[in-house]
C-alpha cells in the first residue's frame, strides 16, 4: 500500500495558494458542478424552457382576446411573461438547493475547507443561465407571434441588464426558500409564491382594473415597476420607473444573498 504515498504534494505539507484566493477558485468549481448537473437533467431543462413558452401562447391566444388594455395585447403581455418565466426558473433553483441539502453532499462539503458561499453561488449561476436561455427563447418566440418592439440596441441592453438583476435577485430568494424547506417537494411549494407575484402586478392586466386593496399591493411590489420599465424601454410607452425597479432588484438581491449565506452556515448546526 505504498501507492498512497507516491504523490508528494499534500494539503498539509505544501499548502497550495491560488493566485485569486480560494473563494474564487471554489466558486468556479461549484459553478462548473451546477452547470454540468443542469446538462445531465435534460427533462428539467426542457420543462424550464417549455412552460414559459406555453404560458406565452396561452396568454396571447387564449386570454388575450378577452383582455382589454387599450393596446395590442401581445405587446402588453410579453414583458409580463418574461418576468413570469424568471419566477419559474427560480423555482427550479429552490428545488435543486433543497435536494442538495437533503442528499448529504452539502454535509460532506461542509467538512472540507470549501468557501461556504461557493456552493450556493454555483446553484445561482446555473439557475440564472437556465433562466436567461428560457427568457431569450420566449423573447424570440414573442416576435413570431406578433410582438413588435420599438427599441434600439441601447434599450435592449438596458432591458437585458435589468432582467439579469431581477433574475439574480429572485434566484437568491429561491436559494433561501430551498435552504429553509425540509425537502425538495416543500421547496417547490414555497417557490410557488414567487410564481404568483406577476399575477398580482401590472404584468397581465393594468392595475387600475383591480379592486383598491389589490391595487395597492400590486403597485408596491417589485414586479410592477420592473414590468412597467421594461415595457417603456421596449415599446416607448409611458410609465417607466427605472430607479424604483433598480432599487427593488438590488435591495432584494443584497438581502436575499446575505440571508442565504447565514442560513447555509447555520444549517444543521445545533
Amino acid at each position: 500500500m505504498t501507492a498512497l504515498a507516491t504523490v508528494p504534494t499534500t494539503a498539509q505539507d505544501a499548502p497550495w495558494r491560488p493566485r485569486l484566493g480560494w473563494a474564487v477558485t471554489d466558486t468556479v468549481t461549484m459553478v462548473r458542478r451546477s452547470l454540468r448537473r443542469t446538462l445531465r437533467e435534460p427533462d428539467a431543462l426542457f420543462l424550464s424552457v417549455a412552460l414559459p413558452v406555453i404560458l406565452l401562447l396561452l396568454f396571447v391566444y387564449v386570454f388575450g382576446g378577452a383582455i382589454e388594455t387599450g393596446t395590442q395585447y401581445v405587446d402588453y403581455v410579453v414583458p409580463g411573461i418574461v418576468l413570469l418565466c424568471a419566477g419559474f426558473g427560480a423555482a427550479g433553483t429552490a428545488v435543486t438547493v433543497a435536494g442538495d441539502m437533503t442528499e448529504g453532499i452539502v454535509e460532506r462539503l461542509r467538512t472540507t475547507p470549501v468557501h461556504p458561499a461557493a456552493v450556493l453561488t454555483g446553484h445561482v449561476v446555473a439557475g440564472v443561465a437556465r433562466n436567461l436561455l428560457a427568457t431569450s427563447l420566449v423573447v424570440g418566440l414573442a416576435h413570431l407571434v406578433g410582438f413588435r418592439a420599438a427599441a434600439g440596441p441601447q434599450e435592449w441592453l438596458a432591458v437585458a441588464g435589468l432582467l439579469v438583476l431581477y433574475i439574480l435577485a429572485f434566484t437568491w430568494i429561491a436559494v433561501c426558500l430551498g435552504l429553509v424547506a425540509s425537502s425538495p417537494e416543500a421547496a417547490s411549494g414555497y417557490a410557488m409564491t414567487l410564481q404568483f407575484l406577476p399575477y398580482l402586478s401590472s404584468a397581465f392586466v393594468p392595475t387600475e382594473t383591480m379592486p383598491r386593496v389589490l391595487q395597492v399591493i400590486a403597485e408596491n411590489q417589485p414586479v410592477t415597476p420592473v414590468t412597467d420599465t421594461v415595457r417603456a424601454w421596449l415599446l416607448g410607452w409611458p410609465g417607466a420607473d427605472p430607479w424604483v425597479a433598480l432599487a427593488w432588484c438590488v435591495g432584494l438581491l443584497v438581502v436575499a444573498r446575505t440571508v442565504a449565506v447565514v442560513l447555509f452556515r447555520r444549517h444543521g448546526r445545533g
Binding site: 504523490v7 504534494t9 499534500t10 494539503a11 505544501a14 499548502p15 497550495w16 480560494w22 477558485t25 471554489d26 468549481t29 461549484m30 462539503l109 472540507t112 475547507p113 470549501v114
Partner: peptide
Amino acid sequence: ARVAHLAPHA
C-alpha cells in the same frame, strides 16, 4: 480534490 484545495496537477 478541488474543494480540498489540492494543487491542480497533484
